[in-house]
C-alpha cells in the first residue's frame, strides 16, 4: 500500500493505481471528459489536472495517467488547478456550445459565458477521442480515427465517407460524453438500407 495525501486527507493507494483511481476510491471528485473505464486513459482533456507540491516546487499533472506514488502531496482544487479548468471550459463553451455536458460542467466552475467567438453554434464534439479509442480497443473495428491535426482536427472514417470497417455497433455513440457522435454516426456506417427504404429512396 502507498500512502499519500489528497487535499490534506491521508489516503492509501494500491500500486498501479492512478491518482484519479485513488481519489475516486476515496470519494474525492475530480472532473473528467476524455476518461472512461473501458479504454486506456489518454491524458488529453486536462480537466483532471491536479497540483503536486513538494516543498516550494509545484506542478500540475493529469490525474488519469499519473501513478500514485508514496508520499505525494496532491491538491485537487487549488487556484492553479481551477485556473486551468476554468479556461478550458470557457474555451470549450465557444468551441462546442451545443454540448449540454460542457455547459453543466462549466457552470460548476462559475463559467457561464465565453469571451471567445463562437464559430459553430451546433458543434458538440470536444475531440476527446473516446469514440476512436472505444472503436479500436473495445470493438476492434478501427473504423474511425482523428483526421488532420491541431485546430483543424476532426473525427471521422477515411475520406470522411462511410466505410466497410464500421460494424454499426454504436459503441462510439454510447461512449461519447457530449452526444456529438450521434450526429456523425451515419457518416461513418452509412445510412442503413432499412432507413433508406422507409424514406422511400
Amino acid at each position: 500500500m502507498l500512502n499519500l495525501t489528497i487535499d490534506g486527507k491521508k489516503v492509501q493507494a494500491e500500486a498501479g493505481w492512478t491518482l484519479l483511481d485513488t481519489a475516486r476510491q476515496h470519494h474525492i471528485e475530480i472532473p473528467t471528459l476524455c476518461y472512461h473505464e473501458a479504454v486506456e486513459p489518454f491524458g488529453a482533456c486536462r480537466l483532471c489536472v491536479v497540483e503536486l507540491r513538494q516543498g516550494d516546487n509545484s506542478r500540475l499533472v493529469a490525474s488519469c495517467v499519473y501513478p500514485a506514488e508514496e508520499g505525494l502531496e496532491v491538491h485537487t482544487m487549488s487556484e492553479k488547478v481551477k485556473n486551468v479548468r476554468r479556461w478550458i471550459l470557457e474555451m470549450l463553451l465557444s468551441e462546442c456550445p451545443a454540448s449540454e455536458a460542457v455547459r453543466e460542467m462549466a457552470a460548476e466552475y462559475g463559467v457561464d459565458s465565453t469571451r471567445f467567438e463562437v464559430r459553430n453554434p451546433e458543434e458538440e464534439c470536444i475531440l476527446c477521442g473516446l469514440c476512436v479509442r472505444a472503436c479500436a480497443q473495445v470493438v476492434g473495428a478501427n473504423a474511425i480515427s482523428t483526421v488532420g491535426r491541431g485546430a483543424q482536427k476532426e473525427i471521422g472514417s477515411p475520406y470522411l465517407i462511410p466505410g466497410e470497417a464500421c460494424v454499426a455497433c454504436g459503441t462510439c455513440v454510447t461512449v461519447c460524453p457530449t452526444g456529438a457522435m450521434r450526429a456523425r454516426f451515419d457518416r461513418v456506417r452509412g445510412v442503413p438500407e432499412v432507413v433508406m427504404a422507409k424514406a422511400g429512396k
Binding site: N142, A143, T146, G148, R149, S157, P158, Y159, A165
Partner: peptide, 12 residues
Amino acid sequence: VAESQAYAVATF
C-alpha cells in the same frame, strides 16, 4: 495497419 490509422497519418 487499419485504413483509418493510415488515413490519420496521411492527414497528420
